[in-house]
């Protein structure tokens, strides 16, 4: 193959993986690193850090692209996002500024992977549930006015919901921030878990709100990769553009899906990310 043909073939593979990453990321609220990082390392033979660098930029693209749709359609709970972002951002600073020097990333990957696999249990317990039942606002949720409503295109009605478990969610978000800060990943999966399991908001609201938040977390973490030259401009362009197209397609699909299907997709991805982190800790790479 000629040099030009080879480059074009290579770019097509990157573009395809990015499109899939954008669709999956915008439906699940995870951003898309879950698809992009393994493809870039295993098939495109980039270093893990360069792959994460590209993935961080792609997370910002998915979060902003899909976010613009979910916010306009009022599925995102902006108050929940802003309040919890306080703790992820603080956690990320503590993680990157202080703990990154003393923590062993391999051990952390293994712990994180195990934690995610364990959190499959509460997700499985409510796998088929369409909307959370009998949730009352806790005191902090009332004070912060976190409850809300959204129009569900699938159910064809306005869904009102309350929010609970704020202290637990705050703790989980701080931990998610620390993990992002040390490992340089968006940790969107932890954000969805906090919304879903601790706060008991409807699944569409939890993925849309996580999606909204991960862009800010990723932007805070991007400086590290930009300054070290770990973001490859010529890789990032196809990734960013195709991830965006995927994200817009994903929003159309997600709004018309049932909450229980989205939760099943999320459970599958949770298992995959858990295994991925475990393997990354044990083998390095992936």
């Amino acid at each position: 193959m000629s040099d030009a043909a080879q480059s074009i073939f290579w770019l097509c593979q990157v573009a395809g993986a990015s499109f899939v990453g954008g669709v999956v990321g915008s439906i699940s609220g995870l951003g898309g690193g879950i698809v992009i990082v393994p493809v870039l390392t295993l098939f495109m033979h980039l270093d893990i850090e360069q792959a994460i660098g590209a993935s961080i930029v792609s997370v910002i693209a998915v979060s902003s692209g899909a976010g613009s749709v979910y916010v306009k359609d009022k599925i995102t709970n902006v108050r929940i996002a802003m309040f919890l972002e306080l703790f992820t951002a603080a956690g990320a600073l503590v993680g990157a500024g202080y703990l990154a020097r003393i923590a062993n990333p391999q051990v952390l990957y293994v712990l994180f992977g195990l934690l995610l696999l364990v959190s499959l249990v509460p997700i499985f317990a409510k796998l088929g549930e369409e909307l959370p039942q009998h949730v009352e606002n806790d005191r902090m949720a009332s004070y912060l006015r976190l409850n809300g409503s959204y129009f569900d295109k699938r159910l064809d009605r306005q869904v009102r919901y309350n929010v609970t478990g704020i202290p637990a969610a705050v703790g989980v978000m701080f931990a998610a921030g620390i993990i992002s800060g040390i490992l340089g990943i968006g940790a969107g999966v932890v954000k969805v878990l906090a919304h879903e399991v601790a706060m008991k908001v409807p699944t569409k609201v939890s993925t849309a709100t996580s999606n909204f938040m991960i862009g800010v977390t990723a932007a805070a973490g991007a400086g590290f990769y930009l300054r070290r030259g770990l973001v490859l401009p010529f890789v990032v362009v196809p990734v960013a553009i195709f991830v965006l197209i995927g994200a817009f397609v994903g929003t159309i699909v997600m709004e018309r899906m049932s909450n229980s299907i989205i939760r099943k997709i999320f459970a599958l991805l949770l298992a995959i990310v858990g295994m991925q982190m475990l393997l990354r800790g044990i083998l390095g790479g992936l």
Binding site: A89, L93, G181, A219, A220, G223, F224, Y225
Partner: peptide, 14 residues
């Protein structure tokens, strides 16, 4: 505060 923390992360960390 989120804005300040995010900018701090982007500009100073690493």
């Amino acid at each position: 505060v989120v804005l300040l923390l995010t900018l701090a992360g982007l500009l100073w960390i690493g």
